[in-house]
Computed example of a mutant assay.
Amino acid sequence: MQHSNADERNSTDQGGPHGPVRLGTWISNTRSRREKLTDHQREQLAALGIDWATAA
């Protein structure tokens, strides 16, 4: 069974300057460092439905 490039693009961003970025890893890292986010960044994440963005 062959996997298409479209399948790979769905799980990673191939255009990053440091290589592919996995969404789950980005979310985990952002969540663990949420105290460093600006108010604007927290508001944007909350607008996307990210519950932990506004939690202390």
Rank of each mutant, 00 (worst) to 15 (best):
H3M: 14
S4G: 12
N5D: 15
A6W: 00
E8A: 12
E8W: 14
R9G: 01
R9H: 00
R9V: 01
S11C: 11
T12D: 02
T12Q: 11
T12I: 09
D13P: 00
Q14T: 04
G15H: 01
G15A: 05
G15E: 02
G16E: 07
G16S: 09
P17T: 12
P17Y: 03
H18N: 14
G19H: 00
G19K: 00
P20Y: 07
P20H: 11
R22C: 11
R22K: 15
R22P: 03
R22M: 10
G24S: 14
W26D: 12
W26I: 13
S28H: 09
N29H: 08
N29D: 15
T30H: 00
R31V: 06
S32Q: 12
R33V: 07
R33M: 13
R33P: 08
R33A: 15
E35F: 11
K36M: 13
L37Q: 03
T38Y: 04
H40G: 07
Q41K: 08
R42N: 02
E43V: 10
E43H: 13
E43I: 03
E43Y: 07
L45V: 06
L45E: 07
L45C: 06
A46Y: 02
A46Q: 02
A47C: 00
A47Q: 04
L48V: 05
G49H: 05
G49C: 01
G49T: 06
I50L: 06
I50W: 00
D51G: 11
D51L: 08
W52L: 08
A53I: 07
T54N: 06
T54G: 00
A55I: 11
A55L: 09
A55G: 08
A56M: 07
